[in-house]
């Protein structure tokens, strides 16, 4: 097929399209959806009994703030990475990762403090229930964000998927903070922070090929 043939075929295939809105606007839409669906899921699971007391502590507020920051910034970055040529400053790229790591560092610092005063600080229970809860809470926002990224045409699908996974995991982790009554820091570090740290690393190589499909050209008929 010559380039002239390609041009003619593409012109024949032309249909009007509605341009996607700016990534920031789309991130706001997603944030609203995530807040509503995540809130519903948290309500279904039930708020932790000690929430009123815990929510007033500095630790809870800092952790929640870091999670909100990581989630919102990551969703904005994922949607920006879905658009070719969209400028994303290094601060905007680093902010969600820095916020997520800061949460992990905060938990580690709390764990170190707890280990100094209690011999059971390292005792780890099974927290798969929390992982399942987080995945359930994140399911709809995560799927929606992946669809929104897929509507774009990412030239860097690995990063787009990694940030989308971080945002989805952030919603799940934030929801679990409101539902899980376990006060042990080691539990929060492994079962709340752990999935948030692992999911983007796993999702990026697995999911990226799906978001690179738009680049593949249809096969030409063979002679």
């Amino acid at each position: 097929m010559t380039t002239n043939d390609v041009v003619s075929a593409l012109v024949r295939d032309l249909r009007p399209v509605v341009p996607l809105r700016a990534p920031t606007v789309r991130a706001w839409y997603w944030g609203f959806l995530a807040a509503v669906t995540g809130g519903i899921a948290v309500a279904v699971f039930g708020l932790r009994a000690d929430l009123a007391a815990t929510a007033s502590t500095l630790s809870f507020r800092v952790q929640a703030a870091l999670l909100v920051l990581a989630t919102t910034m990551a969703s904005g970055s994922a949607l920006a990475f879905a658009i070719p040529g969209e400028h994303l400053s290094s601060i905007r790229r680093a902010a969600p990762i820095a916020a997520a790591l800061a949460w992990g560092a905060w938990l580690l610092a709390e764990l170190a403090a707890a280990a100094g005063s209690s011999s059971t600080a390292w005792a780890l229970d099974s927290g798969w229930g929390c992982v399942a809860k987080a995945m359930t809470i994140a399911a709809v926002p995560g799927a929606a964000l992946m669809l929104m990224v897929g509507r774009g045409a990412s030239v860097d699908p690995r990063r787009a998927v990694a940030y989308a996974a971080l945002a989805a995991a952030g919603v799940g982790a934030l929801g679990v903070e409101f539902t899980c009554p376990n006060p042990e820091v080691i539990h929060q570090l492994v079962w709340h922070f752990g999935p948030l740290a692992v999911l983007p690393l796993v999702a990026a190589p697995v999911g990226a090929p799906m978001f690179a499909r738009w680049m593949r050209r249809p096969r030409e008929p063979r002679l």
Partner: peptide
């Protein structure tokens, strides 16, 4: 081809 597929972005 890529421009065609991504023109809505």
């Amino acid at each position: 081809f890529s421009i065609h597929r991504a023109r809505h972005t």
